[in-house]
Design a binder for these strands. Structure first.
Length: 237
DNA sequence: AAGTCACT
DNA sequence: AGAT
């Protein structure tokens, strides 16, 4: 496992989790699908004001927003096409860090169960695989105001996010809008995970630092967020 | 208000 | 630039 840094209760930072080769693999898979089916531009409920970021999704359910509201749906809002499957490297990331999070939350010592800490898949993982992978593309002037991820029925699983491309200034606070915040500079390949007491923490992107990465030829930043949406089915032995 | 702008 |  790469370095693990506790930012706040329930907020974990893994700098340089993905090496350059894996970043390139993820980039290629994301861009081929998103450019093929098309990015969509989310708009604010009621007002219809467009976001500055472009979006796309992988997985059985994708997050979308328009005048009707925020919601998860299995199809692209423009074409009605089903979202492509979540890339294998992201499923592995989820499997690994989701287990890690449970142990950290339950207060277990890592060494006690380390031999079980495999990133390999097995049938028991299906019940807890990520259903949604939202992809946000930030141009050099794009921002994302402070908000909560609260459109999921199941808030017990953490949110896991991956940064690709240009660096960004990320800010995260508490579950209260007026709570104190901390800023963190995220770089290409970094992973951030927040859940438990931080699952409803307000967070956002204050700015993108242009030309700080060569990963994306057109510049900008791609952020991937893996989430559980529906209540997981009961595990039966 | 997952926006945009303002102020310290 | 960075924090709010």
């Amino acid at each position: 496992m790469s370095e693990e840094i506790l930012i706040a209760p329930g907020v974990y930072y893994y700098p340089e989790y993905f090496d350059r080769l894996l970043q390139e693999t993820l980039r290629d898979e994301i861009l081929s699908h998103a450019n093929n089916l098309g990015w969509f531009q989310p708009t604010l409920p009621r007002w219809g004001t467009p976001f500055s970021v472009k979006m796309f999704n992988f997985g059985s359910l994708g997050w979308v927003s328009d005048k009707s509201g925020y919601r998860y749906q299995p199809t692209h809002p423009d074409s009605g096409t089903k979202w492509p499957p979540i890339p294998i490297h992201l499923l592995r990331l989820w499997s690994s860090l989701r287990k890690r999070f449970d142990r950290l939350e339950r207060g277990f010592d890592k060494s006690a169960t380390d031999t079980q800490d495999s990133i390999s898949d097995n049938q028991n993982d299906t019940f807890d695989s990520p259903e949604a992978c939202l992809i946000n593309y930030y141009g050099s002037n794009a921002k994302m105001g402070l908000h909560q991820d609260r459109d999921e029925q199941d808030l017990s699983a953490p949110v896991i996010s991956v940064s690709l491309g240009d660096s960004a200034l990320f800010r995260i606070g508490t579950a209260e809008r007026k709570g104190p915040t901390q800023s963190l500079k995220l770089h290409s390949g970094d992973v951030l995970m927040f859940g438990g007491s931080a699952r409803l923490a307000f967070h956002g992107i204050d700015r993108i630092y242009p030309d700080t990465s060569s990963l994306l030829s057109e510049g900008g930043r791609i952020n991937l967020t893996l989430r559980r949406v529906t209540k997981p089915a009961a595990k039966i032995f």
